[in-house]
Simulated assay, not measured.
Amino acid sequence: MIPMTRLNRLVPSAVALTLLGAPLVGYLIRDGGRLVGAGALAFHAPRWGLLAAAPAAIQIHVAAALIALAIGLVLLAGVKGDRLHRTLGWVWVLAMATTAITSFFIHQINPGGPGGLSLIHLLSGWTMVALPMAIYAARRHRVATHRRAMTGMFVGGLIVAGLLTFLPGRLMWAIFFGPA
């Protein structure tokens, strides 16, 4: 029998992997082998000019996400609750909010959809709701709630969403892997 604490950590991870894995598998099946065939996967030096030529919203979005990623790694590895944690935490919150807000001005995934929004924008909306809730939990000394919320936003909003930017057809794919 798995202890309940381990099960509590395992179930959300399994659900997240399923929710992310299913669309990825569907995409790869629908792709019909074009991803790995006909030179679609071309390793080369990053083409930073593509990012420089992107709209300002995308540039701000990428910069804020990278700042949030770097600070998030420091916060996860560092001592919790001290002045440095709180100061970096506020900078992280601002970077995450900037990342989420700027995402609403990026419509390349679903330009013809409702308002140009796609399913990934749901994650941005959730981030805008979860950030104040996590801050409220910290101010009320509900450490476990705060930890879960912030870790969830880091993993879902930065790691998972960040990995999705490397799918074919997306800007990060073109910068790092797309045909030259």
Rank of each mutant, 00 (worst) to 15 (best):
T87S: 08
T99G: 11
W90G: 00
I71Q: 06
A63E: 06
S118Q: 04
F104W: 12
G115N: 05
I71W: 01
A63S: 14
I106W: 09
A68T: 02
A100D: 11
T87E: 05
I106V: 15
T98V: 03
G78E: 07
I58W: 07
T99I: 07
I101Y: 06
K80Y: 10
T87C: 01
T102I: 02
A56V: 15
M96W: 07
W92I: 00
G81E: 06
I60W: 15
A56K: 05
A95R: 08
G72Y: 04
V79Y: 10
T99P: 03
L69T: 07
A70G: 08
A54I: 13
T87A: 12
P55H: 05
A95K: 03
I109M: 12
I60E: 04
L84Q: 13
I71S: 00
H61S: 10
S118F: 03
H85N: 08
I101G: 01
H107I: 06
L94M: 13
A54S: 14
L76P: 00
I60T: 12
G112F: 11
P55T: 13
G72I: 01
P111S: 14
L76H: 10
I101D: 02
Q59H: 12
W90D: 00
H61M: 12
W92V: 00
Q108H: 15
T102E: 06
I60R: 10
L76W: 12
I106Q: 02
T98F: 03
W90E: 09
R83Q: 07
P55Y: 09
A65K: 05
G112P: 03
N110E: 13
T99K: 13
T87L: 11
G78M: 01
A57K: 00
G116F: 09
R86K: 15
L94P: 00
A68Q: 03
I58N: 04
T102N: 10
L66G: 10
W90C: 00
